[in-house]
Simulated scan of single mutants.
Amino acid sequence: MTTAPKHLKLTVAATALLALAQPAAADTLRLLTWGGYAPEGVIEMFEAETGHTVEVTLSNNEEMIAKLRATGGGGFDLAQPSQDRIAGPQEEFGIYKPMDLSRIDAAQFIPSMLEATKDNTTVGGEVYGVPHVWGTSGLVLDTAKAGMVADYTDLCAPEVAGQVSYRLRRPTLIGFAFAMGMDPFAAYGDEAAYAEILEQVESKLIECKPNVKTYWGGGDELMNLVRSGEVVAAMAWDTGGWKLNEDNPDVTFVAPASGALGWVDTFVLPAKGQADDAAYAWINFVMQPEVAAMITEVAGNFTASKGADEFAPDALKAKYQASFTPEALDNIKWYPPVPAGLEAIEGGVLDRVKAAN
């Protein structure tokens, strides 16, 4: 999930006002999206090929939901919230309409990603989202010094004592749970079962504290710790590991044996969208591998387009393919919506881990 390019920021407010104030013609796609997901070059190609025009409003998850709630799902024809922001808002506010999957070229998607997103965005038997841009958190390692680290719990191994870092946040709890052979996502609907899983994770994280150099809070902090050599094994994002690899070829992102933790920004149809033809045309256009690679080059993250990595810049393609075998891609654990009540359980666990001696 990237920030808006500077050359687009000046138009965001004006575009948003226009989009909300007036209906668009059927051949105009009003797209509510993240910075980098609709590059100018891609828009130009799409408009030339299809005859549709595109009006882009840049946003983030919170703003997308707020805009669509304010209009009952009006003002836009296609939006791109993260997949964990679909089922809940739809159940509560009815701001989306179901996808007509017969109009989606499913062959262009990585199958496991398409199926996971369909599952996580199903409400009342209807699918409301398909995947677009994705990323993961997993292990960032100095492979020359921490090559034995293959999963999250290996961060507790004596070989890396005092040289480990991770955040005291939900991904750490989830990652450790999977590495310990449990499925926290399967327990999301049962608070007692979830609390029992986190109790075991809490004990493990307290046991692991002597290995932790520091709990990192921001990406720049972690990058500096790894660059200085103070940290040789960490939990972090794939793009951070690839960026560090440019400075030190021994450092890279590794998908954990129990599965990297994945987020997905999707395509959804706002309930009152007026240009479904243009919306489906856009989805099928940008999921073409060559076009998807253009988005990856701008956004920095890969898409769910099957085979698009082959068209990415050579350096980025090499890092991606080294980190993600086909098996590792299929093993990604995609974040589902978080039920109410779980954040309080997680917060208590994280507080106790932090306070433990």
Rank of each mutant, 00 (worst) to 15 (best):
T252W: 04
C208W: 06
E221C: 12
A192K: 14
P131G: 12
A66E: 14
P131A: 09
T121V: 07
A179N: 05
R103E: 09
T71M: 08
K213S: 08
K317W: 00
A271Y: 02
A322C: 01
K354E: 15
Y37S: 08
M148Q: 15
V201D: 13
A38K: 09
G307R: 03
Y280S: 12
A14M: 09
E230V: 06
S165T: 02
L8I: 04
G73N: 03
N61P: 01
D238I: 03
K97G: 06
A14Y: 07
L17F: 10
L350I: 11
K333M: 11
I295W: 11
P158R: 10
W263I: 15
L316N: 04
K213Y: 13
I283P: 01
F324R: 04
G129T: 09
E159A: 14
V201R: 12
P313Y: 01
I197T: 11
T3Q: 11
E230F: 02
D183F: 09
E202I: 10
P98N: 06
R169N: 13
V127G: 06
D314P: 00
A340P: 07
A257N: 10
E202A: 11
E297D: 13
R69C: 09
K118N: 12
A4T: 15
G124W: 12
D190A: 06
D183A: 07
R227P: 06
D330G: 02
T71R: 10
G341I: 02
W334H: 05
E343H: 15
T28P: 02
T121H: 03
S305R: 10
T172Q: 06
M287A: 12
I174P: 00
L32H: 03
Q288T: 08
A19V: 08
L198N: 12
I197F: 12
G124K: 12
L101E: 04
E115G: 10
G229V: 00
V226A: 07
W334Q: 03
T2E: 14
A177K: 01
T325R: 01
A255W: 04
A312M: 13
E246H: 07
T57P: 09
V232K: 04
E196P: 05
L168K: 08
D27N: 13
A26D: 15
Y152H: 00
Y37H: 09
E310Q: 12
G181P: 01
T252V: 05
R103G: 07
P171S: 11
E92F: 00
A79E: 03
K145L: 11
P5R: 01
S203A: 15
E126P: 02
K354F: 11
R167K: 14
V264G: 11
E221G: 14
M148K: 14
E49N: 02
R85D: 15
A179Y: 01
A293N: 07
G135Q: 03
E199N: 13
L316F: 11
A107H: 10
G41Y: 05
W34E: 13
T3Y: 13
A186P: 05
V127K: 02
G189H: 03
P249C: 05
Q108Y: 04
L269G: 09
N211V: 01
I110M: 11
A318C: 06
I206W: 04
G348R: 10
V231P: 05
V56L: 07
P81V: 14
P313S: 01
D154P: 03
I95M: 05
L58H: 14
A355P: 03
T2F: 08
